[in-house]
Computed example of a mutant assay.
Amino acid sequence: MLDATRRLEGFCRATLGLDGPVPLHAPRFAGREWDYVKDCLDTGWVSSVGAYVDRFEAMVAEAAGTRFAVATVNGTAALHAALHALGVGPGDAVVCPTLTFVATCNAVAYTGATPLLVDIDPATLAIDPARLRALLAGWSGAPVKAVVPVHIFGHPADMDALNAVAAEFGIPVIEDSTEALGSRYRGRRCGSLGLMGTFSFNGNKILTAGGGGMVTTDDESLARRLKHLTTTARAPHAWAFDHDEVGFNYRLPNLNAALGCAQMERLGEFAAAKRRLAALYADLFADCPGCRLFRPPAFADGIHWLNAVLFDDPADRDRFLAETNAAGLQTRPCWTLMHLTGAHGAAPRMAGLSAAEAVAARLVNIPSSPWMVPE
């Protein structure tokens, strides 16, 4: 058995006292979730209209440090709506990292545009600003209409450098912050660092609404357009149904928003618990032979959505995955790189994606639920 396996198993079983299967990331409901969801049931406001939707939007806007937030049915819909609101469509390209969950590139494809894949900086796991500049400087294909940096595992990308490159080429930036609610970059909140930010509230995220997503922005006109697009583009009227363009039925049900509001009330607790867990993992793997815990640069105060271990030898990575899962500890490799998937393997890309390939061959995510550690 690898020393890394012994350490993780001992930490989860003996130190934390966790019996049975230990999930990678699971929700915990210990606040007012029951009260708020029951209120929806008691009042009959269960669908896409209700006070909890407005409240959830206001709470996420405050947490992201933006003036506006627009709720959607999931994080993929949030990113699709954001791209559509910018006018991204067929014949366009959108820069995405090859190391990301497939939803990032899928949202681009939904618009009819093409993902343009770029390599990562191993220090952040996000888009490398220098590689982005080289890609854009040499690109002669479809017009690039947006750059979508992803805050991988909740660790902020180097947004100042990325924004500077994007501004040099006149390209707007949309943050894929789906894993980074509560993360900060140089003291500024993720979701407020580009023209728009997007969030996810899936069951495995930092907090959950049972689903749900959000677009954040400081641009009032964009916020109004997003609200219109995501509510089937229905023209305002007391009773008539007229739709002035093709919109999307991306409305978030009040039931989900109620759950999200209760979870948002505990965001500070979740963030503190996740940072405690990350600190414990840093000590656990500090001198572990053949591997190290991923630690972001000093400018990143991340939420540590998923902690990650990087192995020196890919064979040890594979062995660790087998041993930990056999022991009931859910670990997983990072997602298949986009240029290696059947969905986006034909997408255009920069020459060489070696940094992402090296990381993907050696990385394992380890259990990271905030409830694992006591206060």
Rank of each mutant, 00 (worst) to 15 (best):
N106R: 15
G112S: 12
D35W: 04
K145G: 09
N74D: 14
C288G: 05
G187A: 10
E33G: 06
A64P: 02
A71E: 02
A258F: 15
L306N: 08
V373M: 06
A78H: 08
G50T: 11
G187K: 13
A327W: 03
D158L: 08
G182P: 03
V144P: 10
K145Y: 08
D316A: 14
C96I: 08
L207Y: 09
A358E: 15
G170H: 09
W371C: 00
P172D: 11
E265V: 03
G75F: 06
D35A: 13
I120P: 01
G203Y: 09
V88T: 14
D316I: 03
L337F: 00
D128F: 01
A93E: 09
L306R: 10
T76F: 09
A85N: 04
V37E: 14
A77K: 10
T198F: 08
A167I: 09
L193R: 13
M350P: 00
L135V: 00
L193C: 12
I127E: 05
G212N: 03
R276A: 10
V148I: 15
C96L: 13
F199A: 02
F270D: 02
A81C: 11
V148L: 14
T66Q: 05
R224P: 03
A69H: 04
A351T: 12
T72H: 02
Q330T: 12
G290M: 12
L226T: 04
A223K: 05
L363D: 04
F11N: 00
C40L: 11
A358M: 07
D301C: 09
G345Q: 01
A113E: 10
C288Y: 05
A233H: 12
V150T: 15
G141M: 04
P129S: 07
L259H: 05
T5A: 11
F285G: 00
S177A: 15
V70A: 03
E357H: 01
L16M: 03
L79M: 14
L195M: 14
G213D: 04
L18A: 07
C105F: 03
F248M: 15
A113Y: 07
V73S: 13
E357F: 00
F285K: 02
P333S: 08
C105D: 14
P97Q: 12
A161N: 07
G328S: 01
P297C: 01
P172K: 10
C40E: 11
S192G: 15
R131Y: 02
A282K: 04
P122M: 06
A308S: 03
G203M: 13
A300Y: 06
G203Q: 11
S48A: 15
T331D: 02
N74S: 13
A30L: 09
Y110H: 11
R32E: 14
P314L: 07
R317Q: 07
R28W: 03
L116E: 06
L207K: 00
G112H: 10
T178H: 09
V108Y: 08
V22D: 02
A223T: 01
T66M: 03
L83M: 14
F199V: 00
I174H: 07
C12W: 02
F248V: 10
H25L: 06
D54A: 14
T198E: 08
A93K: 10
T324N: 14
L99M: 09
M59C: 07
G17H: 05
C12N: 00
A26N: 02
G191R: 03
G191I: 07
C190G: 05
A346Y: 01
